[in-house]
């Protein structure tokens, strides 16, 4: 049986949306998959050494809240920080891994991480801020792997 392959495109840079790519990549690697993640647009934030990701209930009426907060109040300064803090605490209390830990596990499992060169240039990201061991490439390089993949996810 040849090794299965999983290709993921990570496009979101919020705390909540950072979880699916790293959870699926690390788990697939543990199951024996060869995994590549292509980080583009806001997903590039997941590659920064200092992961300062936030979560917001604004524009996200599905987010469970401990108590109902009117939308206009959610927009007040400091609310996003507070919600992020509450979310992180809840995750810790429930034994959910931190993003740093999941990303380290991906690196350890040799998940290949590729930063989209075009969006790195577009947003003027500093490569020194990214974790080491990543590659820089474009869409064609992604298809070289994704074209052979058994599963391809756009997150």
């Amino acid at each position: 049986m040849s090794q299965k392959k999983l290709a993921i495109i990570a496009t979101k840079g919020t705390l909540d949306w950072a979880y699916p790519p790293f959870i699926l990549a690390s788990t697939a690697a543990a199951l024996g998959y060869e995994v590549q993640i292509f980080f583009t647009f806001y997903g590039l934030k997941l590659l920064q050494k200092d992961l300062d990701l936030q979560v917001s209930s604004l524009g996200n009426p599905g987010m469970p809240m401990p108590m109902p907060v009117p939308v206009l109040l959610q927009a007040l300064p400091g609310m996003q920080r507070m919600m992020t803090m509450m979310m992180k605490k809840k995750m810790k209390d429930k034994g959910v891994a931190s993003l740093e830990e999941l990303r380290d596990l991906c690196v350890e499992a040799e998940v290949k991480m590729i930063a989209c060169q075009m969006t790195v240039d577009l947003f003027e990201f500093n490569k020194d801020d990214f974790v080491s061991g990543i590659e820089y490439a474009g869409a064609a390089a992604f298809f070289e792997f994704a074209g052979e993949a058994d599963i391809c996810l756009y997150i």
């Binding site: 959870i23 788990t27 543990a30 429930k94 034994g95 596990l105």
Partner: peptide, 13 residues
């Protein structure tokens, strides 16, 4: 114990 998905699997692996 106390760990949530996917940590038990990753630790076991």
């Amino acid at each position: 114990s106390g760990l949530n998905c996917p940590l038990p699997i990753l630790r076991a692996k």
